[in-house]
């Protein structure tokens, strides 16, 4: 086994990186892969609560790096799925407690044991971003169909290319189809046109995302949620399947009517 390291980043904060990491990691594990996710947002950890694993943290990423515990001890196993682990961020330290080469070394240790390593990147283009980028084999850039998020995504995509970690793949999160239909929200095609990178996911705006994070249950577990389906599709694409993009109908009533659900657009 040799894991693939996926770094999820964005430029602008609050666009859904942590949500994406939690759902992609859980979705890949649901599909039978061995997955570990790493919270790279030192000082502002959140992946633990989104995954519902906050009560079980003893050691964190910085404890591992500074040798206060063994790697194993900082890996929290998710009891709901066979092979999902979390390495939480330290809450009381800052980004400089870890260096890019620490992250490369850590991931090299994990690679042998896992299929996927998914890293949650902090917002911004500073040290935390460098740390999360250093070990990446693949970079997913999350953005919203919103002017400043798209602009910042473009900056990040450029930086990823400059670090020779490109081409990044795009996840367009929080698409509100009613607004798209009114002409009041950039369409996925618009965003792809502007950023000129390949799309790997279109995630609808979905209240169930918040419901899920309230409960510490990523929405990817919810068979009925549209965002959950969109995340499962991202995971299938990561596994090399050619899944058409969902038609983002405004009403969820179409669920199950597969003919209407899929537009058959190329991957």
């Amino acid at each position: 086994m040799a894991a693939k390291v996926i770094t999820v980043t964005s430029g602008k904060g609050g666009v859904g990186k942590t949500t994406n990491v939690a759902n992609i990691a859980a979705g890949l594990a649901l599909g039978g892969s061995k997955v570990v996710c790493i919270d790279g947002d030192i000082g502002l950890r959140n992946l633990d609560v989104v995954l519902g694993l906050e009560n079980r943290i003893v050691y964190d990423l910085v404890d591992v790096i500074e040798g206060r515990c063994r790697l194993r001890q900082a890996m929290i196993k998710d009891k709901r799925i066979a092979d999902l682990y979390l390495i939480p961020a330290a809450q009381t330290r800052d980004k400089t407690a870890v260096s890019p080469s620490d992250m490369v070394r850590l991931c090299d240790q994990l690679r042998l044991e896992f299929d996927w390593i998914v890293i949650d990147c902090p917002a911004g283009i500073e040290r935390g971003f460098r740390n999360a980028l250093a070990p990446a084999d693949m970079v997913l850039v999350v953005t919203n169909p919103e002017i400043s998020a798209v602009r910042d995504a473009d900056r990040i995509i450029g930086l990823v290319e400059a670090e020779e970690k490109g081409p990044a793949l795009l996840i367009l999160n929080r698409v509100n189809m009613e607004m798209v239909k009114r002409g009041d929200m950039l369409t996925p095609d618009d965003v792809v046109d502007l950023l000129a990178i390949e799309l790997i996911g279109i995630i609808p705006e979905d209240e169930q995302v918040l419901v899920g994070s309230n409960q510490g249950v990523p929405v990817v577990f919810d068979q009925k949620s549209r965002a959950g389906q969109a995340f499962r599709n991202v995971c299938a694409r990561l596994n090399g399947e050619n899944v058409p993009f969902m038609e983002l109908e405004a009403r969820p009533a179409l669920f199950g009517r597969l003919g209407k659900l899929f537009r058959g657009a190329a991957n």
């Binding site: 602009r151 009041d184 618009d190 502007l194």
Partner: peptide, 20 residues
């Protein structure tokens, strides 16, 4: 113009200057 299409036009402009 619909707001999404002015967003697209404005982004096109801004990205050219950002990138260069």
């Amino acid at each position: 113009q619909k707001s999404a299409s002015s967003a697209k036009d404005r982004l096109q402009f801004v990205l050219i200057h950002d990138r260069t």
